[in-house]
């Protein structure tokens, strides 16, 4: 994965660069909006990480101008601004995801992977499939190994999200935002509890485990090797 990071804070930039290089990713850095725009328009990147508050040109404008220039590279906004409004204005400007500082590296990595490998089929296809597990969005029907599985609406949505991102790590925060529409930290272990019930229904009765916990990061749904 080739990443362009537009971030003026050296410490944050080094933290991200070190992490991504360890994963074997390529990364370029720009410290100002102007340099970032120049590189983004020129280079062939898989994803851009853009800080909201940049010297000279603000991150929102950078992305707005890139979108106007028809640069369609996915953008992840990085920002210390955590208000719901800030999130919305980031997405309106043409960003694809929004991550609030401070963040865990695992969260950033998971979100970047989700942006880069967003399967084009997932958005349009009504039938999702991983190994012998199928989910029919229209009929709201889930089957594994030809056997019908009854899920509660929330469990269905959770499985749907995992299957849309099959093979990618999804974090707890991503699940809270997309499955529950929570933009706050709940006091109860909502994600863990629902995940455990979902596993009881789709994994336990069967031989191979499809949902795996990735320690310190989140979950991944993937076909067994």
């Amino acid at each position: 994965m080739k990443v362009l990071l537009i971030e003026d804070d050296d410490e944050t930039a080094e933290f991200i660069e070190r992490g991504l290089r360890e994963q074997g990713d390529m990364i370029d850095r720009a410290a100002t909006g102007r340099d970032g725009m120049f590189l983004a328009g020129d280079g062939d990147y898989d994803v851009l990480i853009v800080d909201r508050l940049l010297p000279g040109m603000d991150g929102l404008n950078v992305v707005r101008l890139l979108r106007e220039a028809e640069v369609t590279t996915p953008v992840l906004f990085l920002s210390a601004l955590s208000g719901l409004d800030d999130r919305i204005s980031g997405l309106d400007a043409g960003g694809d995801d929004y991550l609030v500082k401070p963040f865990a590296f695992a969260e950033l990595r998971a979100r970047l992977r989700a942006l880069v490998r967003r399967p084009p089929m997932a958005a349009t296809s009504n039938l999702l499939q991983v190994a012998d597990l199928t989910l029919d969005r229209l009929a709201r029907r889930v089957e594994r190994a030809g056997q019908r599985i009854e899920l509660q609406p929330r469990e269905f949505r959770l499985l749907e999200y995992l299957m849309e991102h099959q093979g990618e790590v999804v974090t707890r925060t991503m699940l809270l935002e997309h499955v529950w529409e929570y933009h706050f930290e709940p006091k109860t272990s909502v994600v863990e509890t629902h995940m455990s019930r979902l596993r009881t229904k789709i994994d336990k009765p069967f031989e191979a485990e499809l949902i795996k916990t990735v320690r310190g990061s989140g979950y991944v749904l993937t076909a067994p090797d």
């Binding site: 719901l84 929570y182 933009h183 706050f184 709940p186 006091k187």
Partner: peptide
């Protein structure tokens, strides 16, 4: 209303009742 906020409002009260 604002969906995200109303979700938080009800969730907070339900969570208090549970916790």
């Amino acid at each position: 209303g604002d969906r995200a906020l109303l979700v938080q409002m009800i969730a907070n009260v339900l969570e208090n009742a549970i916790v």
